[in-house]
Structure formats: structure tokens, C-alpha cells
Design a protein around this nucleic acid. Structure first.
Length: 416
DNA sequence: GCCCTCATAAACAAGG
DNA sequence: ACCTTGTTTATGAGGG
């Protein structure tokens, strides 16, 4: 198969682009924008007014922010809401959507699938509503899609487990407290490795299988949530205290976007970027089976609370409620959430879905309603936030004019 | 020939 | 005791 290459975040951290992924929240906090991000940014959005809006209180900044607020509200225009649900089964793709997932594996039912175990596992996990599956369900999915394994020697399950264990692309998430080392952990795809898996999938003969993948909708939508605005304001307070210049919202927006891009591992555009900072990894570090490095890498990539904390950090600017998302995408859930009795679940795969997922899993209509409702709510919040900003700006303008009039009156009195 | 990826097998431990 | 899950090690095939 095509090599599932370049999967070492540790190595990636050596490249400038890697920082975008590895320490995004830190980038935010540091207030430094990697040049690579700047370069990758559409120039049109980089208005050359950095000096002009250096001040947080600059009205140009505010004006721009309000423009952005109107331009980036959730789902209100332009940016399509990508549903990760329409293609869970690959068949019910709405008209106008991406091409159907053709189930290439079903074409060659008894032939050995052209995918490596890593990709099979990846596909299985990505097919699940919550992007998390226990080993058993991964078996089932593979068996379901590739009857080849029904007759294949039983060793393939060993291989699956072997892959899950050894491949850093996959993270184990304990279902509940008492089962730290017990049975039935859930396996997720490490978001950091998704681009690599995607890339590997693209190299497969049946690249149409990619269409089952659905990118997380929230971050790259570029919306300006109140959380985001608050976050910028808070950061600017800190920066001011530190004696640094406040960060213009525009810059923050750009960072947010750059981060979102980095987080959006499904972005094939990014995958094909020439600098390929997010995906260019030292092949030596990829999927390393050598005993010495595996130990070290596992320490780095797994023991760190399965990177989940970093994922959470990465969502810094996004309302917590949207971490899981109404659509269930990017399903890194809490242990409580994932603690589901899958054995008794009559829904099968869809049984892993949260309530929101369950709402949407049938025909997609209720899900759209929910999402629409959510978008409206967010829009309202955005409007409120914009209103608050305008209010503040108004106060500032009033104060400014008062001060200036007072000054002129002072001067007049002195002349007299 | 070397290195890498991947598949496969096997041993072992822990838990249900 | 048996099965499942998870980890680790070893080995070989295939490709660049």
C-alpha cells in the first residue's frame, strides 16, 4: 500500500509549520504569527494597515470587525455547512454534494482490500459518528465492508490490534474510570495524523473512498464567536499589562484562520501545499516500528493524556459546547460521553452517536434544523457582541469628543 | 545492499 | 479456564 508516511508530530515540531499544529494555543498566547501561515494566507485579506490598527481601540479595527461579523456569521452566507452526517453511510449524499462513496471495497468482496490495516482502521473510525470505536466495532466494520476477512485467517484481528497499538495515528481513549487497562477502550484517530492518513488514502487506488471523510465544520468556518472576541480582548488586556501592543482583531482573526487551517486536517488544499508544513515529516519517523524510537515516541505521543488536552486547548476560541459539535464531528468526547454500552446498542454504529447525532442520523432533516437553530443563536450572540463593541466604541468616541471639547474650551478660557 | 513500510505471527499480561 | 484486548518483539516481503 501507499506508505502512511510522515506521522510524527514530534518531528513535525521541527518545521515551522508544525508549530501550527503542535502548539497552536501557544501561538495564540505568544501572539506570534508564523511566517508560513502569513504566506499561505490569501493576500486579499491581509490589508496593509497593520500600523493603522495597532490599537485595540482603533475604530478602524472595530469597523473591520463589524464587517467581519457580518461576513462570517455561521451559515448565514457563503460558507456551506458541511454535514458530516450525510455520508456516514456514504449513500445518502444530498444532490449537489460530493460524489458518492462508491464502496469500492464491496466491488471486490472476496479480494484482499487495497488498503493497509491502518487505513482500514482509519476508515472504520471515521465512519463512526463519534470518530471513536472499540476494537470489536472496528472488526465488525472491516468485516462488513470487506468480506475478504470473513474467510481470511484470524490473524488479521491481531494485525488490527497490532496496528492500533503501534500506530501513533490511533489513540486509545478509556471508556470509563474503572477500565484504564481493561477491555473495551475506544480508539480514535489522532487529529494530528489525519492529514497523513488522508494523504495515504488519496494514494490508494480507490481514492473516492475519501469522500466519506467529513471535515469538522466549526473552526474553519471562520466565524467570530463571542468567545473569540472575548478571548482577543482578554489577550489584549494581558498584552497591555505586559507593555506589548494590543493585538488587532484582524491579526487575531488571521491567526484564528491559520489555526483553523492547521486544525482542519481534512483540507486537501493544505495537503497539497508546496511547503506542506503540516504534512512534511521526516519519513524516518513515520509509523516507526523500530524498537528504540517507538518507545520514545510513544512516550511523547501517547502518555500526554492522549493529546486530548491539546485538542481541547486547540478549541480555545470556540465555545465549549461546540467542541463535539451538534453534528458530532471531531468527536473527541469526555469519558462520560464515550462510556456507552455498545454491546447492547440496537443502533449498531449509529448507537455511538450523541443525542445530537441521533437526531441527525436518520434523514438529516432534524439535524439541519438543530444546526440552523444553533447558527441563529450564534448569530444572535455575534450581533450582541458586535453591539457591545459598538457601544464601547461609542462611549470612547463620546469621551474623546468630550475631552477634545473640554480642551478647546480650556484653551479659549486661557486666551481670554 | 540498505532502509522503510507493512503484514504476519507469536508471546505475554491484564481484565471480564 | 477461556476469551478478549492490548502490548511488544521478531521476521519476512516488497518497494524505493
Amino acid at each position: 500500500m501507499g506508505p502512511v508516511i510522515g506521522m510524527t508530530p514530534e518531528k513535525r515540531a521541527e518545521t515551522p509549520g508544525a508549530e501550527k499544529v503542535a502548539g497552536l494555543s501557544q501561538i495564540y498566547k505568544m501572539g506570534s504569527l508564523p511566517e508560513a501561515v502569513d504566506a499561505a494566507r490569501p493576500k486579499a485579506t491581509v490589508v496593509d494597515s497593520e500600523s493603522a490598527d495597532d490599537e485595540l481601540t482603533n475604530l478602524n479595527w472595530l469597523h473591520e470587525s463589524t464587517n467581519l461579523l457580518t461576513n462570517f456569521s455561521f451559515g448565514s452566507e457563503g460558507l456551506p455547512i458541511v454535514s458530516p452526517l450525510y455520508d456516514i453511510e456514504g449513500d445518502d449524499v444530498p444532490s449537489g454534494g460530493p460524489p458518492c462513496y462508491q464502496n469500492p471495497e464491496k466491488k471486490s468482496a472476496t479480494a484482499k482490500p487495497p488498503y493497509s490495516f491502518s487505513l482500514l482502521i482509519y476508515m472504520a473510525i471515521e465512519h463512526s459518528p463519534n470518530k471513536c470505536l472499540p476494537v470489536k466495532e472496528i472488526y465488525s466494520w472491516i468485516l462488513d465492508r470487506f468480506p475478504y476477512f470473513a474467510t481470511a485467517p484470524t490473524g488479521w484481528k491481531n494485525s488490527v490490534r497490532h496496528n492500533l497499538s503501534l500506530n501513533k495515528c490511533f489513540q486509545k481513549v478509556e471508556r470509563s474510570h474503572g477500565k484504564v487497562n481493561g477491555k473495551g477502550s475506544l480508539w480514535c484517530v489522532d487529529p494530528e495524523y489525519k492529514p497523513n492518513l488522508m494523504q495515504a488514502l488519496k494514494k490508494q487506488p480507490f481514492s473516492s473512498a475519501l469522500t466519506f471523510y467529513t471535515p469538522p465544520a466549526s473552526p474553519q468556518s471562520g466565524s467570530l464567536s463571542p468567545h473569540f472576541l472575548n478571548s482577543v480582548l482578554k489577550q489584549n488586556q494581558v498584552r497591555t499589562l505586559k507593555g506589548e501592543k494590543p493585538l488587532p482583531l484582524k491579526t487575531a482573526m488571521q491567526k484564528k484562520r491559520s489555526y483553523s487551517n492547521a486544525f482542519n486536517h481534512a483540507s486537501t488544499v493544505r495537503l497539497q501545499e508546496s511547503d506542506s508544513s503540516a504534512t512534511s515529516i521526516d519519513p524516518k519517523e513515520d509509523h516507526n516500528y523500530s524498537a528504540s524510537s517507538v518507545a520514545a515516541q510513544r512516550c511523547a505521543s501517547r502518555s500526554s493524556v492522549s493529546s486530548l488536552s491539546s485538542v481541547d486547548e486547540a478549541y480555545d476560541f470556540i465555545p465549549k459546547s461546540s467542541h463535539v459539535g451538534s453534528d458530532g464531528s471531531e468527536g473527541f468526547r469526555s469519558e462520560e460521553d464515550t462510556d456507552v454500552d455498545y454491546e447492547d446498542d440496537p443502533l449498531g454504529d449509529s448507537g455511538y452517536a450523541s443525542q445530537a447525532c441521533a437526531d441527525t442520523s436518520d434523514k438529516g432533516q432534524p439535524g439541519k434544523k438543530m444546526r440552523k437553530q444553533l447558527c441563529q443563536e450564534i448569530d444572535e450572540e455575534l450581533k450582541e457582541a458586535a453591539g457591545s463593541l459598538l457601544h464601547l466604541a461609542g462611549i470612547r468616541t463620546c469621551l474623546g469628543s468630550l475631552i477634545s471639547t473640554a480642551k478647546t474650551q480650556n484653551q479659549k478660557q486661557r486666551k481670554k
